[in-house]
Nucleic acid binder design. Structure first.
Lengths: 83, 83
DNA sequence: TAAAAGTATACCCTGAAAGACATTATGTCA
DNA sequence: TGACATAATGTCTTTCAGGGTATACTTTTA
């Protein structure tokens, strides 16, 4: 499933998934937009200090765009207790 | 309309719109998550150096979450030339 | 239109990102 | 298992974010 993106960690996970989905290595992605491989690694590992320009360069390399939406309530599936 | 978010600038615009939509001031938003008003201002103005942890704190204050999606082709509306 | 609220800038300080380069895991597959 | 690709860490340097605090500018409203 697609995890909600509400932290650097979940963002990193989503980015890694997208990169793998495209069959690219960190090095290849980085090279396409002039970024070091270790920078990609840190982002995917959830580095909270990553800067926006860096993030958007990575998004460009993966041909992705962002979206913001209302935070959804936690799924609360099958716990039985509805209150 | 909702602009595609592909840069710190468009992200800032979207965040400002969401904040206004909720009728909150930069100060109020910042206070709710321990951020300075001037920090919110810089983010909304498109500061490319904004850090992810800061972005996610702001998203939390506005009760928003992120989403990643394939970059969509430019609208190409009503130009007539379809190729 | 004056006062208040909201937003943009500025300065100092501390901490850390990312580039450049290098090295050490960790996979992956013949 | 050995060679090669991929990913994670590390150091040094330069540059800048964000906290704290203050102030100017702009918009709202009484």
């Amino acid at each position: 499933m697609i995890p909600k993106i509400t932290s650097p960690e979940t963002l990193g996970q989503a980015l890694r998934a997208e990169r793998k989905h495209k069959g690219m290595s960190q090095k290849a992605v980085g090279h396409s937009v002039g970024m070091e491989q270790h920078t990609i690694s840190k982002i995917e590992k959830g580095n909270p200090g990553t800067e926006l320009n860096t993030l958007f360069r990575l998004l460009a390399a993966l041909d992705l765009e962002l979206n913001i939406q209302p935070r959804q309530k936690p799924a609360m599936e099958s716990t039985g207790d509805n209150w």
